[in-house]
């Protein structure tokens, strides 16, 4: 598991990532089936995410990547199989426990899902509104400032989402997931719709966040530069199954034509 320095995504490859393998799994997806009518999106899909690890799920558009991530966070219920997040089976959780679990799992939507009617500050504070997370105003200010510094947008607290550019919105959305200090962050196509430069910035940001918070991340993507920059491990989702699983360079060197077409 020793990464090759030449392939390290950032010049400052974090020592925290260095092998303590095999770390405890924080997210286990076991034999999950999910279908919509006749469309079998996931068939016997299995995946494990370990602490401090970035896993990219690679797949074509419409291959069920978003369905997988929504099953993990409990927005969709799998037809069969088990999903264990931080030791708890999400399929059997009550509303209250689910909310508590979700406080430890961040989710970055593909469309950012910033609340249009609220300012950036209000957007960031929204996840804190839950009653067991009440804070005083000074604490809230400190939290907002910190996460905005993390994403490099300290001056935007009073702006509305509509006043921000696409990249800035993505950063704010990331900041909103970070404010709860999640153990796991789920990224749903974080670079889709962004220009290559911004895309790279976001990828670097994902790396930096992983280093700072020692969070595990499950990243859904088909953007190969993002995959290359963020992935510790790549899982290839094909025909609803985990077709291949390995480090980026391993898969890139694969002779299998179905794998190869992604890296071409």
């Amino acid at each position: 598991m020793q990464p090759d320095p030449s392939l390290a995504p950032t010049p400052a490859a974090p020592p925290a990532r260095l092998p303590v393998a095999p770390a405890e799994p924080v997210l286990m997806v076991e034999h999950v089936d999910k279908s919509f009518g006749d469309n079998h999106v996931l068939r016997d899909f299995s995946l494990a995410l370990h602490r401090g690890e970035n896993v990219v799920v690679l797949g074509k558009s419409g291959s069920g990547k978003s369905v997988l991530i929504k099953c993990i966070i409990g927005l969709l219920l799998p037809d069969a199989g088990r999903i264990t997040v931080l030791g708890q089976d999400v399929t059997g959780l009550g509303h209250q426990q689910m909310d508590e679990l979700r406080a430890r799992v961040g989710f970055l939507f593909q469309s950012n899902a910033l609340y249009d009617s609220m300012t950036v500050r209000e957007n960031l504070l929204f996840p804190l509104r839950r009653h067991w997370l009440r804070h005083r105003r000074a604490e809230e200010d400190a939290l907002v400032r910190e996460v905005l510094d993390d994403v490099g947008l300290a001056h935007t607290a009073t702006l509305m989402p509509a006043e921000l550019s696409g990249g800035m919105r993505k950063r704010i959305a990331l900041a909103r997931t970070l404010i709860l200090r999640p153990d796991i962050i789920l990224y749903d196509e974080p670079t889709t719709g962004l220009d290559p430069v911004t895309s790279r910035e976001i990828s670097h940001l994902i790396r930096a966040v992983q280093q700072k918070y020692n969070a595990s991340a499950l990243i859904i993507s088909h953007d190969m530069s993002c995959v290359r920059l963020t992935a510790d491990r790549v899982a290839l989702l094909l025909d609803g199954r985990c077709y291949a699983d390995g480090r980026y360079e391993e898969l890139a060197a694969s002779a299998d034509p179905r794998i190869h077409e992604f890296f071409a």
């Binding site: 966070i73 927005l75 939507f109 469309s111 950012n112 899902a113 609340y115 009617s117 929204f126």
Partner: peptide
């Protein structure tokens, strides 16, 4: 329109995910 656009831009899902019903 407000709730519809929130649904379409996944803001309702985002609320769900951030622990707000």
């Amino acid at each position: 329109a407000e709730l519809g656009s929130m649904r379409v831009t996944e803001q309702i899902d985002a609320m769900e995910v951030s622990g707000t019903n």
